[in-house]
Design a protein around this nucleic acid. Structure first.
Lengths: 180, 180
DNA sequence: CGCCCCATGTAATAAGTTACATGATTTT
DNA sequence: AAAATCATGTAACTTATTACATGGGGCG
């Protein structure tokens, strides 16, 4: 369902486009929010056309089809955005790792956390640069900015958790002690 | 893959159990970290037994099988925990909503955010109570606590984002203005 | 004996991933 | 003309969801 919404959202903000365009748009703009590859996008667009949510606005050279959102598609999108969803079931690899971390001995656990810390730091920098770029480019759709902001806050929180957890594990491993 | 890991983790922390036990354990302990229903658990356990990660330790009345983790299973679990994974592709309904929020007019967007705020607040309270309970019960596996801590931090961050975004939208809707 | 909960499973469908296949256009 | 890349699609497989099916065991 959400893939449809993402596609409708892109068609709505950026105007009509082909499957290829949408796949590119995914990579560029919405990828850190919802990921999909072209092999998922093409069939989904076909189904959406069959359901009347989009129309084939134009047929270009080699099978290129330009899709545009229909009124029905806009309604569907609006309904999804305003209708409140029950929280989707949680399925987070990071949290699973957190849960199972104490199965490792302290040194190993801290090693894992420090790898994670490096990755998370890199991701945070990446997102912050992206935001700086977007701000200066003054690209009007603010959606990207709100979502980026969300990503940046999440990354910062992740880092804080990593550090706090590593500290806790270290403290427990050497209680009231100073050596390694 | 991660379902296997979750199951191996539970067998490793809580000892042998049947499919039913594990399904219960999922609901009780690991559910806010990784969700799975019994219809996914039973077949997966069978495959894991075929792969030598678990063994059927005992057969009880009516087809009840008690599974136990094998050495090979422990190794697999250990490998997953220490081997560093590339970040899985992002797919977050919340972030997608954030991305598409500006498609709504300001009043609608703020309405959506306030619904979200209520839900997120409820979730936060729930997790905080769970943590209080776990702390007082002094249940030894710390994993639950680290994961809970992660969940609580994430919920708090979510709330902050919701409030900041609502404020931003409100400020833009009535620039330099005081009325509604 | 009938009802309810325990307990295990299968089937059908949906969603997502990875790999394969194909041909047109632009660039060098 | 060859190479790169644009552009569209399909196939096979894995993972997850929802619904259906079945039967034992305890209890009133």
């Amino acid at each position: 369902m959400s893939l449809r919404i993402a596609l409708l959202g892109l068609l709505s903000t950026s105007g009509p486009g082909s499957g290829y365009d949408l796949a590119k748009a995914f990579e560029r703009s919405i990828n850190y929010v919802w990921h999909a590859g072209h092999s998922q996008i093409y069939p989904e667009l076909a189904k959406m056309a069959a359901d009347g949510l989009v129309t084939v606005e134009a047929q270009g050279t080699r099978g290129r089809k330009t899709y545009a959102i229909t009124d029905q598609g806009s309604e569907e999108l609006h309904r999804w955005l305003t209708g409140h969803r029950p929280a989707p079931p949680v399925r987070s690899e990071g949290a699973l790792l957190a849960f199972l971390l104490p199965l490792l001995d302290p040194a190993e656990a801290i090693g894992v956390l420090s790898t994670l810390e490096a990755e998370m730091t890199a991701r945070l920098h990446e997102l912050e640069q992206l935001r700086a770029l977007k701000r200066s480019a003054q690209v009007p759709p603010r959606g990207g900015l709100y979502a980026l902001d969300f990503g940046i806050r999440s990354a910062r929180t992740g880092l804080e958790w990593i550090r706090a957890t590593a500290d806790d594990i270290a403290a427990r491993a050497t209680p009231g002690d100073a050596g390694a």
